[in-house]
Amino acid sequence: MTTTDVGRGAGTADPEPPTEAVSAVMRRAKVQAATEHTTVGLVRTASDGTVTIACACGMTLTNGPTWSLDEHIRLHRAEARFIALAAAAPAGIPRLVRWPLSTEEHP
């Protein structure tokens, strides 16, 4: 038996499935956020140096005076994951951020 077999019922006639640390609901929320927030189309560069690309959600991601297009993409995806996971989290779970977000915070 290898260390990767421990806890997976290795060597038994009726193996137990591994214990999952993340619930199926939260896994689905994470996958859905990733699917709904992929970049689409081509990167476009304007004459003023603005660089943009579209997101599948309809938002246009862009660079700015102090951030790159890559940084905006990473932030956008992280926020999408946060919102999806926070919405799927069990009631009563302790949070760092007040939930649910108000409509002013998340239109």
Results as ranks from 00 to 15, higher is better:
T19R: 14
V97D: 00
S47F: 08
E104P: 00
A91R: 12
T38K: 15
T66S: 14
N63T: 05
E36Q: 15
E16P: 01
L101C: 03
R74N: 12
R98E: 03
E104K: 15
C55G: 01
H76T: 09
A29F: 06
I83P: 09
R95G: 03
H37F: 08
T12I: 06
F82G: 04
L96S: 08
P100R: 06
T103D: 15
P15R: 06
T45E: 14
L96Y: 13
G41V: 03
V6R: 14
V25D: 12
S47M: 11
K30L: 12
P90H: 05
T38V: 15
H106I: 03
V40M: 12
I53M: 09
M1G: 14
E71L: 06
T66G: 07
R28I: 10
A10V: 10
C57S: 11
A91N: 03
A46L: 10
A10C: 12
H106G: 00
F82D: 04
I93R: 15
N63A: 02
V22E: 05
D70R: 14
P15Y: 04
S68A: 01
T50P: 01
D14K: 10
A88F: 00
S68T: 15
C57A: 08
P18H: 01
P18V: 07
L85C: 02
P107H: 14
S23D: 02
T60Q: 14
L75E: 13
T52L: 03
